[in-house]
Amino acid sequence: MFTMILLLYLQQHRDVMLESTSLRGTYKTKKACEAAAVRARGPLPTPQGYAAAWHDAMCIPINRGVIVNEGKPVDLGKLLQGRPPVVCEGTGAWRRVVELCTPAGGNGGMR
C-alpha cells in the first residue's frame, strides 16, 4: 500500500519555502501512486506577493490496514481571493487547483 504526500512550495524573492504538506489517497501499488502523483506535480496559481507556487508529490509505502486521514490542504482560494494572479497561465495550474479541491472519493482514492 502507498500514499502520496503533497508538498506545497512558495517562492518569495529568492527564498523557496515548503509551506505545507498533506496526505492524499491510498493506492495498492507504487505504480498506481506514481501515476496519480504525475498529475499533482507542477505549477499552481501564484498568490500576490510570491514569485512562484508549485506542488511536488512523493509516494511512500504504508502498512496494510493503515487508514490515511488526508491532510487539510492549504486554502489557496483564500490566498488568491480578491488578488488573482497577474498572468493567466496555460500550464494547467488552474486544473490542478480544481483537482486538489475535490475529495479523493468515498473509497479513499483506492486505485
Results as ranks from 00 to 15, higher is better:
Leu80Arg: 08
Arg83Ser: 10
Leu76Arg: 07
Val97Trp: 07
Cys88Val: 10
Ala93Met: 08
Gly90Ala: 12
Leu80His: 07
Val98His: 09
Leu79Ala: 13
Val74Met: 11
Gly77Leu: 07
Leu76Ser: 04
Lys78Gly: 07
Thr91Gln: 01
Cys101Ser: 13
Thr102Tyr: 06
Val86Asp: 12
Gly77Trp: 07
Lys72His: 06
Pro84Asn: 09
Lys72Asn: 09
Gly82Leu: 05
Glu89Pro: 03
Leu79Gly: 06
Thr102Ile: 04
Val97Cys: 10
Arg95Ser: 12
Trp94Met: 09
Leu100Arg: 14
Leu80Asp: 05
Glu89Gln: 09
Leu100Pro: 00
Lys78Cys: 05
Val98Pro: 02
Arg95Glu: 11
Thr91Ile: 03
Leu100Glu: 15
Pro84His: 12
Arg83Ile: 03
Glu89Ser: 13
Thr91Tyr: 02
Pro85Asp: 06
Pro85Ser: 09
Gln81Arg: 14
Val98Arg: 10
Leu80Val: 12
Gly90Phe: 06
Val98Ala: 08
Gly82Ser: 08
Pro103Gln: 03
Val97Gln: 02
Val87Gly: 01
Arg83Lys: 15
Gly77His: 10
Gly92Arg: 02
Val97Ile: 10
Ala93Ser: 15
Cys88Pro: 00
Gly92Met: 10
Cys88Lys: 14
Gly90Asp: 10
Leu100His: 12
Leu79Lys: 13
Gly77Lys: 07
Thr91Asn: 04
Thr91Trp: 02
Gly82Met: 06
Lys72Arg: 13
Gly92His: 01
Gly90Pro: 01
Gly77Gln: 08
Gly92Asp: 00
Val98Asn: 05
Leu76Phe: 10
Arg95Val: 03
Thr102Val: 02
Lys72Pro: 15
Arg96Ser: 04
Val87Arg: 12
Glu89Trp: 05
Lys72Ser: 12
Lys72Phe: 01
Leu76Glu: 04
Trp94Tyr: 14
Thr102Ser: 09
Cys101Val: 00
Val74Glu: 08
Arg83Ala: 15
Arg95Ala: 14
Leu80Pro: 02
Pro85Val: 06
Gln81Leu: 11
Val74Leu: 12
Pro73Tyr: 01
Pro84Trp: 08
Gly92Pro: 00
Val86Cys: 01
Pro84Arg: 11
Val87Phe: 07
Arg96Val: 02
Gly92Ile: 03
Val86Thr: 12
Cys101Met: 13
Pro85Phe: 03
Glu89Val: 10
Val97Ala: 07
Pro73Ile: 13
Cys101Tyr: 08
Asp75Glu: 08
Val98Trp: 11
Arg95His: 11
Pro84Val: 07
Pro103Cys: 03
Gln81Val: 05
Asp75Leu: 05
Val97Asn: 03
Ala93Ile: 11
Thr102Trp: 07
Arg96Glu: 00
Asp75Gln: 07
Leu80Thr: 07
Arg95Leu: 13
Glu99Gly: 02
Pro73Trp: 01
Arg83Asp: 02
Gly92Thr: 00
Trp94Pro: 03
Val74Thr: 15
Gln81Lys: 15
Lys78Leu: 10
Val98Ile: 05
Cys88Glu: 12
Gly92Ser: 04
Trp94Asp: 06
Gly90Cys: 11
Arg96Trp: 06
Cys101Arg: 13
Leu80Asn: 05
Thr102Leu: 09
Glu99Cys: 01
Arg83Thr: 14
Cys88Trp: 08
Arg95Thr: 05
Leu79Phe: 15
Trp94His: 10
Ala93Tyr: 04
Val87Glu: 15
Ala93Cys: 14
Leu79Tyr: 15
Ala93Pro: 01
Val74Cys: 04
Val97Leu: 12
Arg95Pro: 00
